[in-house]
Computed example of a mutant assay.
Amino acid sequence: MNSSIAYALLMLVAGIGIPVMATLNGGLGARLQSPALAATILFFVALVLAISYLITTEGFPEKIFPANVPVYFYFGGFFVLFYILTITWVAPRFGISNAIAFVLLGQLIAMSLIDHFGLMGVQKFTMSLKRLTGLGVMTIGVFLVLNKVPGGAR
């Protein structure tokens, strides 16, 4: 199988997992009546699984924080925590579709800026009219699938 197709399929499955995860996280937070406790439990489960995967596939690393890795790369952990806490708290109140639609909109904005400016050392993809049009169409699509728009209108 072509590696591009394999990557696309893998990311498709990961994308399917995001609303499933949001539903599970929101349900756990609601049942526990604590998004923070739910996030803590979820991170504990994730940590155990990640350590198990690491040790099974690569063994225990010599260094956990190598000197050649810029410190800002570790800030990804902040965004993981922020996403888990917010989706766990917001999804039961706003709906999975609405919450994920705005997550998707945020991803579209961020990916465009990161690619256009080549931020954090990624390959640069300059914004073109074709790409801008595609982003506009995707943004319109996000709003068309919303169950409830901000302000309460349907």
Rank of each mutant, 00 (worst) to 15 (best):
N147K: 04
G59H: 14
A6D: 13
T57I: 14
I84P: 01
H116Q: 00
N98R: 07
G141I: 04
M1Q: 08
L47Q: 06
A30I: 05
T126V: 12
F43P: 01
I16E: 05
I5A: 12
V45D: 09
A91C: 12
E62N: 13
H116M: 02
N25W: 03
F60T: 08
A30L: 13
V69H: 13
G136W: 06
F75M: 12
A36H: 14
F65H: 07
T23F: 11
G141S: 04
P92I: 09
L54Y: 14
Q123D: 13
V137R: 01
L49H: 14
T23R: 03
L135I: 05
I41N: 06
T40F: 15
T139F: 04
S112Y: 01
I64Q: 09
A46K: 06
L108P: 00
I84D: 04
K148M: 02
M127Y: 02
V71W: 15
V137P: 00
F75C: 11
L129E: 06
R93F: 09
L49E: 11
K63F: 11
L28T: 03
G118H: 08
L129K: 05
D115S: 09
V13Q: 03
A110R: 09
F117E: 10
F44Y: 14
P150T: 03
A22G: 10
T86A: 10
V71S: 12
G136A: 10
L9T: 08
T88F: 02
P61V: 02
S34K: 02
S128C: 10
T133A: 11
V45S: 14
S128L: 08
I55K: 12
L108E: 01
G141E: 04
A14T: 13
L108H: 01
G151E: 07
Y53M: 14
Q123S: 10
P61D: 06
L10G: 15
V48H: 15
R93G: 09
I84S: 07
L81M: 13
K130G: 01
G77N: 09
T86F: 11
L119Q: 03
F65V: 11
F94V: 12
F78M: 14
P150C: 05
F102T: 02
P19G: 04
G15E: 03
L132S: 10
A91M: 12
P35F: 02
A30Q: 13
A67R: 11
L132D: 06
F75A: 08
G59V: 09
F82G: 05
K130N: 06
L54M: 15
G77A: 13
Q33L: 08
G118L: 05
P150M: 10
R93N: 08
G76M: 06
N25R: 05
V103T: 08
W89D: 03
L47P: 00
V69T: 07
R131E: 00
M127D: 04
